[in-house]
Amino acid sequence: EPLWIRPDAPSRCTWQLGRPASESPHHHTAPAKSPKILPDILKKIGDTPMVRINKIGKKFGLKCELLAKCEFFNAGGSVKDRISLRMIEDAERDGTLKPGDTIIEPTSGNTGIGLALAAAVRGYRCIIVMPEKMSSEKVDVLRALGAEIVRTPTNARFDSPESHVGVAWRLKNEIPNSHILDQYRNASNPLAHYDTTADEILQQCDGKLDMLVASVGTGGTITGIARKLKEKCPGCRIIGVDPEGSILAEPEELNQTEQTTYEVEGIGYDFIPTVLDRTVVDKWFKSNDEEAFTFARMLIAQEGLLCGGSAGSTVAVAVKAAQELQEGQRCVVILPDSVRNYMTKFLSDRWMLQKGFLKEEDLTEKKPWWWHLRVQELGLSAPLTVLPTITCGHTIEILREKGFDQAPVVDEAGVILGMVTLGNMLSSLLAGKVQPSDQVGKVIYKQFKQIRLTDTLGRLSHILEMDHFALVVHEQIQYHSTGKSSQRQMVFGVVTAIDLLNFVAAQERDQK
């Protein structure tokens, strides 16, 4: 057995438009009618409502009807409940999964919650491996369901041993009777949507819809739904939504950006999952974080739909894509998950301010006199920076000697690579993860907040409520011999709460 199987392995699926269902090699399930009293909570997966979006479509000038398939009504709160249950049931049916076995899954959280929910009911041990950027709410729900959680670096490539995929496979090879159901490759993922989600949409719309818009992560949702719609409703256009920084969209030119990270969760990847059939997507749109969270908040405030950030991405694209539809036509959007997962993220004004998705003037509360002053007023001194090749031991000596707790790590040209902190280095040394002679590049981390000289002290204040420091950066445009230009970030300084307090105190003292 291989040590790991690539999540982007070539698909062996034989589905073709027009091929009889009787030739399918898979076990198919028909939607079942729910009894009045459910035998367990797993029976509350599927049969989610279709809700008309009344205000947002009109606000953006849509002539067509805009409908939302509300997947956050599933038992675990997301569309991923469907595939989690289906993968477990299919693994039980073919004898792969037996009582007492362990389920391991690399996930952005929602599939993990679905699997942990099913594992709690069915009696399996469950280990979820997820990147650090995923919300604390997801972690809390997983723990409450009895799952064990392993976190991995957000910026690790999918084929790196440190990625959530790599760590999951390492655990599988170490733990007896453990299984990775593997949402990236498992046919049960798109089949769950082909058999149930798509049929529900067709039934709820009486077979009449002209466009379907869905955000894409593993691709199982859009693949399964689109294949069924292509068979039953061939005139329906399928629109895929991919965040900026991901590479799922086609044509490839759409993916060209210097951005590699994004805040919206559960969609987009740096590889093409095996289950994603991009041939059934008629057109791709890219979405960005700001519009995703703005539209998610709009869905909550104006439509009462308590959905997550990827739902915002989907609707932001839908109001663009559906401009081509006329009166009497219908566009369906998939709202994948609930706001429950993001209470401390985009639902929080403070978080939105820190990330730059909300401006101070958007909030009406009274601010102190210094709130709208610029960061450049602080008069920061030149920063202490270190090269990635310097040793951890030497870096600790320098920081202690100069009285700093942290320093930016830059390359020879001064471009920011990340940050090192005294606390992080000492804990890594004590844990045996690094040696004093190791290069400081081994303990770089990139989960820090950046701020510009033109940003306000109010925004800085919000950042420092949650973080010990902020890195002050400025952009530099560099022209190359080819005539092309590129933008790079340079370090201007490091600012802490002490710097802000000293500035405010000094100004008030001078005024007296």
Score class of each variant (00 low, 15 high):
367 K>F: 15
388 P>N: 08
358 L>E: 09
499 D>S: 03
505 A>G: 13
390 I>Y: 10
349 D>A: 03
404 F>E: 03
338 S>F: 09
425 M>W: 09
361 E>T: 14
359 K>N: 15
494 V>R: 06
363 L>T: 12
434 V>P: 13
496 T>Y: 02
243 P>I: 02
314 T>I: 09
241 V>G: 13
363 L>W: 11
311 A>D: 09
256 Q>V: 14
262 Y>Q: 05
315 V>K: 07
406 Q>A: 09
324 E>N: 11
315 V>C: 10
372 H>F: 14
445 Y>R: 08
330 R>Q: 12
504 V>E: 09
511 Q>V: 11
463 I>G: 13
395 T>Q: 09
288 N>S: 10
350 R>Q: 14
460 L>T: 05
306 L>W: 00
319 V>R: 02
423 G>Y: 04
418 G>Y: 07
362 D>L: 11
239 I>P: 04
440 V>M: 15
403 G>W: 12
245 G>I: 00
374 R>Q: 04
262 Y>H: 06
357 F>P: 04
394 H>Y: 15
305 L>D: 00
321 A>M: 08
337 D>A: 00
257 T>D: 10
310 S>E: 05
402 K>F: 09
414 G>R: 14
270 D>Q: 04
260 T>P: 05
487 Q>G: 15
405 D>A: 14
345 K>W: 00
280 V>L: 14
254 L>I: 05
384 L>I: 05
259 Q>C: 11
325 L>Q: 05
366 K>S: 12
262 Y>T: 10
275 V>G: 02
353 L>N: 03
398 I>F: 15
381 S>V: 13
362 D>H: 11
485 S>Y: 12
373 L>S: 06
279 T>Q: 14
333 V>L: 14
504 V>I: 06
341 N>Q: 05
366 K>R: 07
360 E>W: 13
311 A>L: 07
465 E>K: 13
377 E>W: 08
339 V>N: 05
279 T>C: 15
467 D>I: 02
507 Q>T: 05
268 G>T: 01
363 L>F: 11
244 E>Q: 10
425 M>Q: 12
322 A>E: 02
458 G>Y: 08
323 Q>D: 10
491 V>Y: 04
408 P>Q: 13
422 L>D: 11
369 W>R: 07
375 V>T: 07
322 A>Y: 01
270 D>K: 05
290 E>R: 04
480 H>V: 11
378 L>F: 15
387 L>C: 10
310 S>N: 06
366 K>Q: 12
417 L>G: 14
376 Q>K: 10
442 K>S: 08
400 R>F: 09
441 G>W: 05
294 T>C: 07
466 M>T: 12
259 Q>D: 10
448 F>T: 04
358 L>H: 07
316 A>T: 08
360 E>S: 15
366 K>H: 11
362 D>F: 14
292 A>N: 03
357 F>C: 02
275 V>K: 01
346 F>C: 05
507 Q>F: 13
347 L>W: 02
267 I>D: 06
463 I>M: 15
338 S>R: 08
392 C>K: 11
409 V>P: 05
270 D>H: 04
450 Q>D: 14
254 L>W: 07
321 A>E: 05
424 N>C: 10
463 I>E: 09
254 L>K: 03
314 T>R: 06
342 Y>M: 04
471 L>H: 08
448 F>P: 08
431 A>M: 10
284 W>R: 00
239 I>S: 06
489 Q>I: 11
251 P>H: 04
396 I>K: 04
413 A>V: 15
295 F>D: 04
478 Q>A: 12
313 S>R: 03
420 V>P: 02
309 G>K: 01
373 L>H: 11
365 E>S: 13
425 M>I: 15
248 L>K: 03
394 H>V: 12
433 K>C: 15
504 V>G: 14
490 M>R: 15
501 L>F: 09
248 L>M: 07
343 M>D: 03
432 G>L: 11
419 M>Q: 12
465 E>H: 06
283 K>R: 07
280 V>I: 04
251 P>K: 04
256 Q>K: 12
396 I>T: 13
497 A>Y: 10
463 I>L: 13
380 L>T: 12
477 I>R: 12
400 R>N: 11
393 G>F: 15
249 A>Y: 04
478 Q>M: 12
389 T>N: 15
381 S>H: 13
278 R>P: 04
410 V>Y: 14
367 K>C: 12
247 I>W: 06
254 L>S: 04
431 A>E: 11
507 Q>K: 15
275 V>Y: 00
391 T>H: 15
490 M>W: 12
482 T>D: 07
499 D>W: 02
408 P>V: 04
481 S>G: 13
292 A>F: 02
446 K>E: 15
461 S>Y: 05
374 R>M: 11
302 Q>N: 12
362 D>R: 14
382 A>C: 04
308 G>C: 01
241 V>N: 00
278 R>C: 00
355 K>C: 04
282 D>F: 15
251 P>C: 04
363 L>E: 08
260 T>R: 06
467 D>S: 12
308 G>N: 00
292 A>T: 11
324 E>F: 15
399 L>Q: 03
483 G>P: 12
507 Q>C: 13
392 C>A: 15
476 Q>L: 15
439 Q>A: 11
309 G>F: 02
350 R>F: 06
300 I>T: 03
446 K>S: 15
277 D>E: 07
393 G>R: 15
357 F>K: 05
389 T>R: 14
289 D>N: 03
315 V>Q: 07
398 I>W: 07
387 L>Y: 11
305 L>N: 01
330 R>N: 13
353 L>V: 15
432 G>D: 12
297 R>S: 05
444 I>K: 07
440 V>F: 07
384 L>F: 12
266 G>Y: 02
398 I>V: 08
496 T>G: 08
432 G>Q: 03
449 K>G: 04
400 R>H: 11
402 K>M: 15
427 S>C: 11
509 R>I: 07
402 K>Q: 14
430 L>T: 15
366 K>I: 13
381 S>W: 12
434 V>A: 14
471 L>S: 10
404 F>L: 15
255 N>K: 02
449 K>M: 12
492 F>C: 13
295 F>I: 09
300 I>A: 02
468 H>V: 05
249 A>W: 01
330 R>F: 05
409 V>H: 00
368 P>N: 10
248 L>T: 02
257 T>A: 12
339 V>F: 06
362 D>K: 14
388 P>F: 06
268 G>K: 00
290 E>V: 14
391 T>A: 06
258 E>W: 11
371 W>G: 10
395 T>W: 10
447 Q>T: 12
312 G>N: 00
333 V>H: 00
495 V>K: 04
294 T>I: 14
325 L>Y: 02
427 S>T: 11
466 M>Y: 13
448 F>V: 14
242 D>P: 01
354 Q>S: 12
295 F>G: 08
409 V>F: 10
481 S>I: 11
511 Q>A: 11
472 V>L: 13
420 V>Q: 13
451 I>D: 08
408 P>R: 02
379 G>F: 12
418 G>D: 07
395 T>P: 10
302 Q>V: 08
468 H>C: 04
487 Q>N: 15
381 S>L: 15
438 D>V: 15
246 S>N: 05
398 I>Y: 14
375 V>Q: 06
310 S>Q: 03
389 T>V: 15
290 E>M: 13
439 Q>P: 09
242 D>V: 00
268 G>E: 00
309 G>R: 00
336 P>M: 01
253 E>R: 12
384 L>R: 09
427 S>K: 07
353 L>F: 14
315 V>F: 09
385 T>P: 03
289 D>H: 01
407 A>F: 13
250 E>T: 10
511 Q>C: 12
283 K>V: 11
373 L>I: 13
399 L>G: 03
484 K>E: 14
416 I>F: 08
487 Q>S: 13
262 Y>K: 09
506 A>L: 05
264 V>C: 07
470 A>I: 04
421 T>C: 07
356 G>E: 08
261 T>V: 05
241 V>E: 08
504 V>N: 12
329 Q>K: 11
331 C>N: 01
294 T>V: 14
507 Q>H: 12
467 D>K: 04
270 D>I: 02
318 A>H: 01
380 L>K: 11
274 T>R: 06
447 Q>G: 06
284 W>K: 00
478 Q>W: 13
473 V>T: 15
347 L>M: 07
322 A>I: 05
307 C>R: 04
452 R>F: 12
507 Q>M: 15
334 I>W: 00
399 L>Y: 14
268 G>W: 00
459 R>L: 09
314 T>F: 07
387 L>Q: 13
492 F>L: 14
429 L>C: 11
372 H>M: 08
328 G>Y: 07
254 L>F: 02
357 F>N: 05
329 Q>N: 07
406 Q>C: 10
487 Q>L: 12
406 Q>M: 06
484 K>Y: 14
273 P>W: 00
493 G>K: 12
485 S>Q: 09
295 F>Y: 12
267 I>G: 02
465 E>T: 03
301 A>K: 03
462 H>K: 15
285 F>G: 10
407 A>R: 03
364 T>A: 05
284 W>Y: 01
266 G>R: 01
375 V>C: 10
250 E>W: 07
480 H>N: 12
342 Y>P: 01
256 Q>W: 13
500 L>V: 15
445 Y>T: 10
288 N>G: 12
414 G>K: 09
